[in-house]
Amino acid sequence: MPRRPRSAGSTAAAPIHERVDGARRGSLIVVGTGLMLARHATLETVEAISCAGHVFHLVSNSATEAWIRRLNPNATSLGDCLAEGKPRTRSYSEIAGRIVEAVRGGVRVCAAFYGHPGVLVTSGRAAIARARAEGFDAHMLPGISAEDCLIADLAVPAPLLCWQSYEATDFLLYRRRIDPTVALILWQAGMLGEPSVRRDMRARPERLRVLTRVLLRHYSPRHPVVLYEAAQLPTSSPIVERVTLASLPRQSIYPKTTLYVAPRPATRSDAAVARWLMQA
């Protein structure tokens, strides 16, 4: 039975680890709030937020920020680390630095990111590495990612026994190899090749053309592609737009859009391996 989290609005003293010598000992727990406001957070995530001495958060909307403040009023947004034109890598390093600084100060810190905190969130992992290098206890809890929501919402015709998943920029930059007979998921297509962030960001058509050209080596122009965004708020539905691969450069693709490329018909299984498995 999980421990009951601190009630909303509680102003109880911040819990802090005590060392034998009486000195305060900081720690770090990195959590994910999932995509859907409040509802995707696991019990252990709610407890981690509620019981932290201080919560840092970088989440996708002000309603989720309000929910975190209800769980723990000692909460600070990390949003000011992001700025238009500022390199994202610098922002993420600053975020990690701020989190670890609080840990050094002896605070039991919780850092909350939206989605899964270990999926495409560089600053959470960096903060854990830095804290551990300095001898602090630091770990991560799993969260619900956009991919989890996509698999549930798209009701893919067959159960996904295997799939491939890439960050879109990484996919192009490193010329990742794919198997077109397996479902393909491309994250953050709306931020394709963008070193920084800007308001109302959408994928640049010329970059989508490059992505499309690469995919056309494996799929036909009429191959179905889904543009997907998970629902984030309790009154919203997921966004699911079905387009053809060839039309991709003409689409408005937002930072939170995930692309799902359906698999081509499967190849035949290996008869020799199948026979061997049956014998075993």
Binding site: S62, G79, Y92, V121, T122, A146, M191
Partner: peptide
Amino acid sequence: RDPRLLANTVGAGHTLMLGHGGGKP
């Protein structure tokens, strides 16, 4: 009931600029 309009309305400030992290290596 427009999910993008609603998300943008409550996504004031930095949240309009959020991707999911990651970015270029």
